[in-house]
């Protein structure tokens, strides 16, 4: 069974940065109503850099693993850099995602973009 690359299974079983922040600077929820996947992303920003991040949510293994991995990827990064983040950055880091599940994998990235556009 391979569409669930080891990185996805690993993040699904041991999610990173899961929980909530007190008084986050960015607090955004993105959902895929058709399948019920929900990702909440919270960022604390200092001097234009992501100082801390948390995610919470529910849904499929791919969306939740992608959210976990994304928090690892963006921590310590300047917002300016994150604004240029492409789909491929996340998909490659996940080890590739099959065509039928791209929407799931990209849900947390949509949350991030929504949060950054209002930040």
């Amino acid at each position: 069974m391979s569409p669930y690359e080891e990185v996805i299974l690993e993040h699904w079983r041991n999610p990173r940065n899961k929980g909530r922040l007190d008084a986050p600077d960015v607090d955004v929820v993105e959902a895929n109503p058709l399948c019920g996947d929900v990702v909440r992303l919270q960022l604390r920003v200092r001097d234009g850099v992501v100082e801390d991040v948390r995610f919470d949510g529910r849904g499929c293994a791919i969306s939740q693993a992608a959210a976990s991995l994304l928090t690892d990827m963006i921590k310590g990064k300047p917002l300016a850099e994150l604004k240029g983040m492409k789909d491929e950055h996340l998909l490659d880091a996940l080890g590739g995602v099959i065509r039928t599940r791209l929407n799931c994998a990209l849900l947390p990235l949509r949350a991030l973009r929504k949060g950054l556009s209002s930040a």
């Binding site: 569409p3 669930y4 399948c35 499929c60 293994a61 791919i62 039928t100 599940r101």
Partner: peptide, 22 residues
């Protein structure tokens, strides 16, 4: 605790076509 889409995708890897969704 497992989303139906994950079940369908994994079964598809074994050639098994089921429906998942609403």
């Amino acid at each position: 605790g497992i989303h139906p889409h994950d079940v369908a995708t994994l079964l598809d890897q074994e050639g098994i076509a089921i429906r998942a969704g609403h």
